[in-house]
Design a binder for these strands. Structure first.
Lengths: 248, 248
DNA sequence: AAGTGGTCTAGACCACTAA
DNA sequence: TAGTGGTCTAGACCACTTC
């Protein structure tokens, strides 16, 4: 048996107390000073215990204000970790976007709703096909709308091997802090079916991604349509602190 | 201007040194003692700096062994954080699985390949439909294969409001450490189309999830087929350390 | 056995928050 | 202005790795 560390013991006690309702969500935990006194521990040890509670997402702390209980149970955390935006757009590393058309568009009512902006707002619109080398059929039809604030990338994307998001991240000092992604199945028809050389009504994966900056504004919106048999969206999610991540 | 903290300054210096190649990936960083001496800092401050490098994924440390450089650049981390397995199976909280059939099956060649096991291995197979209250059509046809080691859940799942993964997590002391998920578009036909009351060839989202234990064995495999217009798979990914997570 | 990082103490000063 | 958490020092002992 390994020796239980004091900070780990204190953390366990506090987690137990929070779970039992002694410290309800929204209430404050005792101050560091008070915990030092109660459990006869140094401040260092108390802080180490509280750091564990923070890591578990059970409390939040603010200088001058105290330690607040924010969750009753330290839920096991499952994490999909991505090292770059390219990992979200999984294929970006191997697949190349061949641009078919670039234009400045003004948002009509329908587009404005999709992009979360006012009608009339101007966007850089890019339309193209994504392909991987050695495969004759494209893996997706893609439409990308870039916030006109970042229209400076226009000259950089033709024949760029990088994803547009990566170009923007580089040129504008990493503005993207969040990505929202919606995946649905659709039946493809009309012009897009023709472009992808699909029979009308063929099943496809539709992926809409919204890249947000810190203000919550959309930096990029991309819409990809992947024919059913040409694309699989795969992801691995591992439990926080598990060593499984490397092996899966 | 806020005062830069010493540990943050040291962390920046070390990140810079690693990026410049002074400490190549695979090499060791100077010891805590050495860094204390070089920069005239207390060990506490040096350790705070090194903790930052760990959080950034640039170094890893081992007691008795030292601090190893594991990455040249602190890549921006994007994280999809999930508080429970239920968040992976997004609908599990609102949707209920109505079990149509439960049986013990022996894996034939095709099933064995999908499950990553030997042919002949026995699994608990559950077939059902997922529905949400107040909606007449089911949102998915679902097949679930449970490793026979966990067959004890069989009696617990009929009419259970909990997801099967949650039941196993509870009964068997949280064996699941990783989940692999594959999303594709398919055209539905045959028996499944009938069951979902879909026209043959209708587009649908197919989601295959494999829940693994620490040994890498599959605990549960689930296959869900969601008719196109009844289901959207949505996820939010935020940059590590961003405050955006709460607002999106 | 020597050296590493992990834990822990007892102090100190400071920045921030709330009364 | 009192009290909170954040940073920092100078020590100490211990568990672990490497030789």
């Amino acid at each position: 048996m390994s020796v239980p560390h004091r900070y780990a013991q204190l953390a366990d006690i506090l987690i137990e107390d929070i779970g039992s309702g002694r410290y309800p969500v929204g209430d404050r935990l005792p101050t560091e000073h008070e915990l030092c006194r109660q459990y006869e521990l140094s401040r260092y040890t108390v802080r180490a215990a509280l750091r564990r509670l923070i890591d578990l997402g059970v409390v939040s702390r603010r200088q001058g204000s105290g330690t607040r209980v924010v969750a009753r149970y330290p839920v096991p955390r499952y994490v999909l970790s991505l090292s770059s935006l390219d990992d979200i757009v999984q294929h970006a590393r191997e697949a190349r976007l061949s641009v078919r058309k670039t234009s400045i568009v003004s948002a009509d009512a329908k587009l404005a709703r999709r992009l979360g902006c006012k009608t009339g707002k101007r966007w850089l619109r890019i339309e193209g096909l994504r392909s991987v080398e050695g495969q004759s059929e494209p893996i997706s039809y893609t439409e990308i709308f870039v916030n006109s604030r970042y229209r400076g990338v226009r000259g950089l994307i033709d024949n760029a091997s990088q994803a547009i998001s990566a170009v923007i991240q580089e040129k504008y000092d990493e503005p993207i802090v969040a990505v929202n992604q919606e995946i649905t199945a659709i039946a493809v028809s009309g012009r897009i079916a023709e472009t992808l050389r699909l029979a009308p009504g063929a099943p496809a994966l539709s992926i809409v991604r919204r890249y947000h900056d810190e203000a919550g504004e959309i930096v990029i919106l991309s819409l990809s349509i992947h024919p059913a048999d040409r694309f699989v969206y795969a992801m691995n999610i591992t439990k926080q602190g598990s060593s499984f991540a490397a092996t899966i």
